[in-house]
Computed example of a mutant assay.
Amino acid sequence: MMEKTVTLYTRQNDKTLRQLERDGRIINHRAYVQMHFGDIAPLFMESYDWFTKEASKILEKPEDVHAPIWCSISPDNCLKPIEGTVVYVLEVPENKVIYFDDVKWDYVLNRIYLPDDEADAKAYKQHLKELGVSNGFEFFEGRYKGVYPEEVTRIKESWKRAFRIDHWTIFNVCGNIWEIKKEWVKRIIKPGEEVR
């Protein structure tokens, strides 16, 4: 029986072409993520490290991989190739993809509580009010850092909902993979070429 595959699209630095040729695969390193974000990297690395740890519970991570590779599920929502980048069109075995909700991922990046639904959002707002806290942004950094450790735990637990897809659209669903194998690459799109 044929293995079921899905088509994914990912924009990567064009230096990855050499890695693909040399190693037969592309993997992401923590340092690449840090370079990508530049000065704001320290703010995001904790969230990316959390994501890597949680995603590896869903799908085992190869030993030498330090960060996942973000992919779009549609050419319509893929970052277009710009100078210094290429877009890989991939045909990936479905069992090698971790899906997550990119809209929910923003809660993780902002390090705030990710509500289960509207009722939970309302209840959490009330909970903050009862604590005398005006917003949930300051449990990790700011005036409430270290004051409410149980809130930090509660917030981190809520982030797991990012892996639950409530509404499947090309604009909120992303696919994550641990590596790009050479045999998965169907096309390489360069700047100026159409992503299709």
Rank of each mutant, 00 (worst) to 15 (best):
F51N: 04
I112R: 13
G84Q: 04
Y144H: 15
K96Y: 05
I112H: 02
H36D: 11
G175A: 07
G142Q: 03
G24R: 03
A31R: 15
N172R: 14
V65I: 08
D14H: 08
S74K: 09
S47P: 05
E150C: 01
Y113H: 13
Y32L: 12
I188R: 08
K145Q: 11
V89Y: 07
W50Y: 15
E91M: 00
N28D: 07
K125W: 03
E60A: 07
R18I: 04
M1Q: 07
E157D: 11
H66W: 08
V92L: 08
F139S: 14
Y107H: 09
S47W: 01
D116C: 13
A121F: 08
V92H: 05
E130M: 15
K129R: 09
I155F: 09
G38H: 12
A121S: 15
K129W: 04
E60P: 01
I73M: 05
W178T: 12
K15N: 11
I188T: 14
L43C: 02
R154L: 14
C174M: 14
E138L: 09
W105Y: 14
T5K: 03
C78P: 01
I165N: 02
I112P: 02
N176P: 04
S47I: 00
R30P: 13
A41Q: 11
N95T: 11
S72C: 05
E150R: 08
L131H: 11
R164D: 08
R25C: 07
L128Q: 00
D14K: 04
H66G: 14
E60L: 05
L79H: 08
E183V: 07
D64N: 15
V195N: 10
D64M: 14
S72V: 03
D49N: 12
I73H: 00
D14I: 06
I69Q: 01
Y124I: 02
F44M: 12
W70E: 06
K156I: 03
Y48T: 10
L59N: 06
E194K: 13
D49V: 10
I189N: 00
W178R: 10
D23N: 11
V6A: 03
S47R: 04
D166P: 04
T169G: 00
K104I: 01
W168D: 12
K61P: 11
G136C: 02
Q34F: 12
V147C: 05
F137V: 13
K96Q: 10
K104Y: 04
K190R: 15
R143G: 07
V103L: 14
Q126A: 05
R111S: 10
R143L: 10
Y32E: 11
H66C: 08
N13L: 12
D64T: 12
G24Y: 03
L20A: 04
V89W: 04
I165Q: 00
K53N: 15
R30Q: 14
I180S: 00
